[in-house]
Design a protein around this nucleic acid. Structure first.
Lengths: 193, 193
DNA sequence: CTCATCATGTAAGGAGTTACATGATTGG
DNA sequence: CCAATCATGTAACTCCTTACATGATGAG
């Protein structure tokens, strides 16, 4: 259910077309909440039906349509309600730690590949999040710039601080996973001796 | 798709009825991969259809049925194949960090509640995982005892080591989340000044 | 004229959630 | 006889994934 709030978070900054939204999404909130366009377009339509956003339809050339979405007062309220409501935490479902718990069933080589892959995966994520952290620090992310442009001076510090803090948390988690993976490789070394 | 491998991991140790499996699940692999019984029973049926497990039907009293499942050679192979195959990592979808990135939209009080809840959630998980870690160290988990009973002496160390290592990773992640939550509260203190 | 980008979707299926539903056996 | 536990599910729904599908516009 968080997809719509991720979308509202972007649209609250200012109206965007589905296409632009989807592009901006991938470069901002998508680092925290991934969604493909095949999920974004239908969700936007549902949000229109529920009155959270409205579409201004523009024609493109002869037959093309371009829908520019903006948040309605109901959508604004829904977003703020969500921000105040307790978050629902999903039950744990962790394939990597599941597999790790049963690695005795496989060969040392495939256990090694597993940890190497784990490290590589999280190094990829780490890179993304560190890059984003730099873009936040240097205020060079497009959505953040747009956000700050419509934010009163007094709230700019907070706005940046929270985004920075969120990505810091993700960076630390990635580092933790990488450290765990490396210790997994060391464990294999010890067990093979 | 990991549910069936979590189930196979348990059934590989020895045959269990759906009910027993579901109970053992909650006390072992369920700490890493949660699944409710309403998901376990249908999955077992599907696995029977696909030939990964077989059910020995026992009567209970007049009309009751009890199905005791055991892994077939095809199921064993499927499990080992999964253990060797690269794990598929899901794209990030993290409601807590999503919300954290937009906390400027809400009141300091509700931001505070958010971090307090985050800490409490992860402290709950931490407790579960630490308890399980102790049960692994002291070899007092029922499934682990059963597992070791059918494991040759030479592989017992590995078996325990991997489970211990998996839960260690989870414990560290929980500690990381708690530390992040606490730093969130400190950030709020600083911003409110 | 053609390719990159703009622009918008549908359809089928898998996985998980929540709620509901039923009945048997055993111990007190 | 009643409650706890044993035992097994179904049904409806949401969310997400993967693959497919189409066409317009603008720059070179």
């Amino acid at each position: 259910m968080s997809l719509r709030y991720a979308l509202l978070a972007l649209l609250r900054v200012g109206p965007l077309s589905g296409y632009d939204l989807q592009k901006q999404f991938a470069q901002s909130v998508g680092h925290v909440w991934h969604a493909p366009d095949s999920q974004i377009y239908p969700e936007l339509r549902k949000m229109v039906q529920e009155g959270l956003i409205e579409a201004e339809e523009q024609t493109r050339g002869e037959r093309g349509i371009r829908r520019v979405y903006h948040v309605t007062p109901a959508g604004e309220r829904d977003f703020l309600d969500w921000m105040e409501a307790p978050l629902d935490y999903q039950r744990v479902r962790d394939p990597a730690h599941l597999r790790a718990a049963y690695l005795e069933a496989t060969t040392p080589e495939s256990a090694r590949r597993f940890f190497e892959r784990h490290i590589a995966e999280w190094e990829g994520e780490l890179q993304q999040w560190e890059d984003e952290l730099v873009r936040i620090e240097t205020v060079s992310n497009a959505m953040l710039i747009r956000r700050l442009a419509v934010t009163p001076e007094a709230e700019r510090e907070r706005t940046i601080a929270f985004k920075h803090f969120a990505y810091e948390g993700l960076v630390e988690r990635a580092r933790g996973e990488i450290a765990w993976g490396r210790r997994g490789l060391e464990l294999l070394d010890r067990l093979e001796r």
